[in-house]
Design a protein around this nucleic acid. Structure first.
Lengths: 189, 189
DNA sequence: ACCTGAACACCGTTCAAGT
DNA sequence: ACCTGAACACCGTTCAAGT
């Protein structure tokens, strides 16, 4: 807990992560540049390499924070339909961050927050099965995983084709409700 | 239909498309380089710009051929489970091409082959509804779209996490069957 | 310990010039 | 009409050198 002093910057590492998030929000994942992150932080292009092994490792740190935020959003949603809506909403509101989260290769250990997000979906699935809201022979794990897969596909395709082409709706919440309803016969509320 | 002679190359345009496919298969979408395509074709890095406006337009041409191949694969599959298996199998066997297909922004007009692929899923969905194999209140269009979304999510997540983490299986066909069964109660055959 | 300055190989793209 | 050669701005990454 000793007070640390850094040469030019207080906490360059976090400044880089924050700057990366800014660029992702402004320009998207495809236009992300490590050199630009350094420029925004006011340091040389070599400076980030004191804190991250390479560009991908910085993006992994960004992704990890993204998973934490996503898990928070999901916590505030109850029920399968709202959970699904929150997932697609997150992707819709943070496209660059969302794409980054699912591009960064989780080497070995998996994100704890990412795991926590899945656990929420798992609990909601088990509850919906217990209450008879959804009827499936599959285990809660397999069912929840299948739902995750569906929500992820919905988010990904929505980011590429934001306009409504198949009557699923335009708004993230509507997309999730319509899709889950079509597959599971889930009630909208 | 006049015989055309090109300076150094017979049909550079197709050579570039083919070379791009090779690189995508060898190195994947992230490592794709337009300059390397030119190098492989034995032309200068400026030559591709006689045939494509830019890098993205070449990748769009590649994507279009990918949709044609995908539609062919789907044609040889009958029933929802086999269609789904063929979709995930295609992504599994051609990851670089698959990613390219869903990154290239369809400006205005949509791929005819991509539309044809969806039509096949739509017909299989309607048939499954008619036979009572699947029971859902939703229209065939919305149901088919929801299934497409699911298969796409399955393919995307499988490419990132090829190992079996949730008991859905390892093989593309198994993944599709397990997932569709969990959501729809679809019979494996 | 942390950052700079300068370099390297590479990228996408442009444009005058060659045939 | 089609391609080359050379240039431009930019990228990710490395490394000796500064403080």
């Amino acid at each position: 807990m000793a007070e640390r002093k850094t040469y030019h910057h207080g906490t360059l590492r976090q400044a880089l992560v924050d700057g990366a998030k800014e660029i992702l929000a402004e320009r998207g994942h495809d236009q992300f540049s490590l050199n630009e992150v350094a420029r925004r932080a006011g340091v040389s292009t070599a400076a980030p390499y004191r804190h991250f092994r390479n560009r991908d490792e910085l993006l992994s740190a960004v992704a990890e924070e993204g998973y934490v935020t996503l898990a928070e959003k999901l916590e505030n949603a109850s029920g399968l339909a709202r959970l699904g809506g929150a997932y697609v909403r997150f992707a819709h509101d943070n496209p660059g961050l969302f794409v980054t989260m699912f591009r960064s290769r989780p080497e070995g250990a998996e994100s704890a927050a990412g795991r926590a997000a899945f656990e929420m979906l798992l609990r909601a699935t088990a509850a919906a099965q217990d209450s008879g809201e959804i009827a499936t022979h599959a285990t809660p794990e397999i069912t929840a995983r299948s739902l995750w897969v569906t929500l992820h596909g919905l988010a990904v395709l929505h980011l590429q084709q934001p306009h409504d082409r198949y009557g699923l709706g335009e708004e993230p919440e509507q997309l999730a409700t319509t899709t889950l309803s079509a597959l599971l016969g889930l009630k909208s509320d």
